[in-house]
């Protein structure tokens, strides 16, 4: 039982981070004026960083790591 609960919690965490990551990468591509490979790489790294920031902020704000 504990393993599935931990599994679903991990799933929810990755779902949230991946969700934020996709939205923020899209936002990055809107911000830049010219799209090339390096922009994609730097954009996805920055978006990943911001996605983890988003999750940490939500956990810090709500005090619980569960979904809000």
């Amino acid at each position: 039982m504990a393993r599935t609960v931990a599994g679903s919690a991990a799933l929810r965490v990755t779902a949230e981070v991946v969700g934020w990551w996709a939205v923020l990468t899209g936002l990055w591509l809107v911000l830049i004026s010219r799209v090339d490979l390096l922009e994609w790489v730097v954009g996805s790294c920055a978006s990943l960083l911001a996605a983890f920031g988003a999750r940490a902020a939500r956990v810090a704000a709500t005090g619980r790591s569960g979904s809000a």
Binding site: L24, L27, W28, L31, A46, S47, A50, G53
Partner: peptide, 8 residues
């Protein structure tokens, strides 16, 4: 706004 500002 926090992640958006972070990304900007």
């Amino acid at each position: 706004a926090l992640p958006v500002t972070l990304l900007i």
